[in-house]
Structures are given as structure tokens and as C-alpha cells.
């Protein structure tokens, strides 16, 4: 799961990174958003159930949906 701040929510760390990338000479970098990645090892093979569980985990704990978005990737 990847959790990042929503658009419209100020991300001062992202801004600082954006500035640092610019000062290293990387041009053409737009908005930078810093976030968190959660890697989970899961038992079971029911993809639908697993996705529902992961979504519930994000909603209940891993993301604060007032300020954060999340995405889920399964492999």
C-alpha cells in the first residue's frame, strides 16, 4: 500500500525535496509528494477478499483519510 498526502494538502517535505532536486540540476520536476509504503505478506489466495481487507486496513489505520490518499497493489 502506498499512502500520500492528498492534492491541496500542503506537503512541506515534498516541497523541500522538490527544491533539492532542482538544486542538483534535475530540471522538469513538477510537484513532489512524499509518502509511505507498507509491504505486507499475506496468507490466502482469495484476491477479492485480500483487496477488501487491505482497503479496510488503509481506512482504519494506515491512512488518515482526512489528509491522505492510498493505493493498493497486489502481486
Amino acid at each position: 500500500m502506498t499512502v500520500t498526502l492528498k492534492n491541496g494538502v500542503l506537503d512541506p517535505q515534498g516541497k523541500a525535496i522538490e527544491g533539492a532536486l532542482g538544486s542538483l540540476g534535475f530540471s522538469g520536476v513538477g510537484h513532489v509528494r512524499q509518502g509511505k509504503v507498507f509491504d505486507l505478506e499475506l496468507e490466502g489466495s482469495d484476491k477479492v477478499k485480500t483487496e477488501a481487507d487491505l482497503k479496510a486496513m488503509c481506512e482504519k489505520l494506515l491512512a488518515n483519510t482526512v489528509i491522505e490518499n492510498y493505493t493498493i497493489a497486489l502481486d
Partner: peptide, 11 residues
């Protein structure tokens, strides 16, 4: 309570 408390803008 509504809302969220984020990192200080000064970091």
C-alpha cells in the same frame, strides 16, 4: 474531533 494535525510547515 474533526481535522488532522500535520507536520509543522517549518518541518
Amino acid at each position: 474531533l474533526p481535522g488532522a494535525l500535520m507536520r509543522n510547515s517549518s518541518l
